[in-house]
């Protein structure tokens, strides 16, 4: 057991070093563009969305589940907020009333996420549907509801004050990055310091033992999917504030990307292992690769290729190292 955690940590350190190497290589290749304040800033506006979605998926992976609906949740939350901003707020509102309306919109968005996650949790924990099927179904359902509301069109034109969330900076730190840091710190504490977090890891490590030791599995599972939904809702806030529009099927390729980021960050899709910091490093690594190769004028498709290669490279490295480590401790029977 201890050995496993040790492995996870050394994997994280390796990922961190490789991420730094990627950063240095990119900086060396295109120093005039990559190392500019402008690039750092623009990166800090880009990755928080994918980062939050990846952490949402990570939380569900800790129990051996998955949440394919998280992008659907983000879009649905975005659309409910967009409705409030465009239909509810009377024209000419400003100052404090405007502030209250914005808060109301954000609360509606995030609670949409929580409710959607609650529904996922119910379907998985109470009805007993496999997570991949349940969330594939709700992904269709949430996106479907969003399509019904918008008839497929984008809603745009939000109050200036709201757009601040997606487009402004607080002391050199972009607002989305600020939200990202706060949220990940919160989730990190939640996972490592609270009983909910520890129960999540236990269910993913050994479900039966966890149940027999008195953990109320259904409740923990429901909470984990709610948490994932809330993160989806927060992502929705950032998404519509950054693009000034809400659309039913925005960012559908985010789902697989977020899974890629989580496994790259050392999350075990079968449950039990994974840390927030790993996912954060992984999303940074992909952002550096992605920005760097953009500056080298690579197409998006080439980036897809490079992301895949990067994932395999890191994973092969981890597996070889871990096997070496395992062999040193116990001479295991070779299963060939």
């Amino acid at each position: 057991m201890k050995n496993w955690f040790k492995n996870i940590d050394s994997n994280l350190i390796r990922l961190l070093i490789i991420t730094m190497i990627v950063f240095i290589i990119m900086a060396a290749l295109v120093p005039s563009k990559f190392l500019t304040l402008r690039n750092i800033e623009s990166m800090s506006f880009q990755f928080p969305e994918l980062g939050l979605l990846s952490i949402a998926i990570m939380i569900t992976m800790l129990t051996g589940g998955i949440d394919l609906s998280v992008v659907g949740i983000a879009n649905l939350s975005g659309i409910f907020m967009a409705l409030i901003f465009t239909k509810v707020i009377p024209e000419g509102t400003s100052g404090f009333p405007m502030f209250l309306y914005l808060i109301m919109g954000i609360i509606v968005g995030v609670s949409t996420g929580a409710f959607a996650g609650y529904l996922n949790g119910l379907l998985i924990a109470k009805v007993g549907i496999t997570p991949i099927l349940a969330t594939l179904g709700t992904m269709q359902l949430f996106t479907g509801i969003a399509v019904v509301i918008t008839k497929g069109f984008a809603i745009s034109g939000f109050p200036e004050a709201f757009l601040i969330i997606g487009n402004s900076k607080i002391l050199f730190v972009s607002f989305p990055l600020f939200i990202f840091i706060l949220t990940t710190a919160g989730i990190s504490v939640l996972l490592s310091k609270t009983s909910l977090g520890i129960n999540l890891y236990l269910i993913g490590t050994n479900e039966k033992a966890a149940v027999f030791s008195g953990i109320r599995k259904a409740r923990v599972l429901i909470k984990s999917y709610m948490l994932s939904g809330i993160l989806g809702g927060i992502t929705g806030v950032i998404m519509i504030a950054r693009t000034n529009s809400a659309k039913a099927d925005y960012g559908s390729s985010y789902v697989l990307q977020a899974i890629l980021v989580s496994v790259l960050g050392g999350v075990n899709p079968a449950g039990g292992f994974g840390k927030v910091i790993g996912v954060v490093i992984a999303v940074l690594a992909l952002q550096f690769l992605s920005s760097g190769f953009s500056m080298l004028r690579f197409s998006n498709f080439a980036k897809e290729f490079i992301w895949g290669a990067f994932l395999l490279f890191i994973m092969v490295l981890n597996f070889i190292q871990n096997r070496k480590a395992a062999k040193n401790i116990v001479k295991k029977e070779d299963l060939k």
């Binding site: 899974i259 895949g308 395999l312 092969v316």
Partner: peptide
Amino acid sequence: VFISLLKMPGLIVTLGTGSMIRGFLLT
């Protein structure tokens, strides 16, 4: 090769190979 010889989980391997294959095709 990855799944059997390196004993890596299929999801991770095929996430990687899948995006590599498609990226290669389109690039």
